[in-house]
Design a protein around this nucleic acid. Sequence first.
DNA 1: CTCTAAAGTTTGAGTACTCAAACTCTTGAG
DNA 2: CTCAAGAGTTTGAGTACTCAAACTTTAGAG
Lengths: 222, 222
Amino acid sequence: MATETVENYLKALLTLCDESPTGEAGLVRLAAVLGVTKGTATSMIKRLAEGKLVKAERYGGITLTGKGRRAATDVLRRHRLLETFLVRTLKLDWSTVHAEAERLEHAVSPLVIDAIDALLGHPSVDPHGDPIPDKSGQTRAASSRPLSACAMGDKTRLVRVADQEGAFLGFAARHGLMPGVRLTVLDADPQAQSMLVQAQGHDPVWLATAAAGKIAVEAGSD
Amino acid sequence: MATETVENYLKALLTLCDESPTGEAGLVRLAAVLGVTKGTATSMIKRLAEGKLVKAERYGGITLTGKGRRAATDVLRRHRLLETFLVRTLKLDWSTVHAEAERLEHAVSPLVIDAIDALLGHPSVDPHGDPIPDKSGQTRAASSRPLSACAMGDKTRLVRVADQEGAFLGFAARHGLMPGVRLTVLDADPQAQSMLVQAQGHDPVWLATAAAGKIAVEAGSD
DNA sequence: CTCTAAAGTTTGAGTACTCAAACTCTTGAG
DNA sequence: CTCAAGAGTTTGAGTACTCAAACTTTAGAG
């Protein structure tokens, strides 16, 4: 089994690779995400490469191998199942759950995570709307688009809030902006770079485009 | 917060000190429990002493300080709450739960352990019958005596099975020897150093005195 | 095409933990 | 009272991870 540190590097690489258009991650970015210096990241990548978990040419981009991607997906699965468990079973707050799962994900055995999966009825998304990979590593992602791409008058449903920080999540929760809620775009002002959105049953709220970019809504609706 | 390693040393010391008549733990024993060499244990004890978690004279016995005992009790509380949770909520097997809790106990925050405590209704004993310290570190231990001290004809109730190994716990469970069950001593043969005990609703089983010593029963009954 | 800023690498050192093996101290059997 | 055996200590070295700082390479602006 990989160490806790290795698991964290793999998880960060999975996100970074999937975000990047080239599918490759950069060292400086990786180091920043993990809160280490770039020298540290360099030597760690070298070790991951020796373990066939990543492919990295000297001075080139980093990609996960099949083995590395599988291991990273498994960490992500544990993380998201734990977040779901902490919210649904232990009634912890949506906005505080990320940090807790971050610590637990390295300590849960396959036995325990399977039991949690069963207890929750094999959920397909976590409390933020992020898809939970199944046991074989497959993800069934609901297609979505950023809220920031919506126009005035659009009615849709919130799918995902892509943020780990407690502060934004707390703000979102206070305005009803949680996965599954019906959403109406009451106004969209390109000049002010902000939009007025209303979650069903809540007061409308102005969001800057940057903030609206963190919120994903159903792709098919208008 | 103490590291995972430090927490393990403290937990081992708590057990060792409480088992010892002098209240002091020995290094060789400690090292054996933790699976490290005695040299490793020596240097670790030195560091614990610097952190005021233990008191240790050179070539003398080791005792926990108030601070050290408090920290150790907290680890024990987390461990036993987790075992209870794994059995009651996740339906894991009684006999496999110790190892899982061993890994999780270092990763659960106070927030999570309090939520688990509440979910379980503030249990006072874990699945093995061991008392769970409360949030302030207090333990309400039921008075008990070893089953091996019982005589033929005694009827009593099983309080605790003091063993961490899966094998013995599995054996005990198969014969109904679990905390809370009514127990009858059908026969006790001092020569053969064994006794025939029956858990209510199960077939009688012969136990060697050594095995019966791991089982505690109610103190007051006959 | 050149030059510099950013990206990536290397080096030397430090922390936390570990071992093996050589050592010293304490204690109790005779 | 002596002296082995066991308990405890020290030393030197190794692994996994980290940093700071000096260094090299790449790539894009001009």
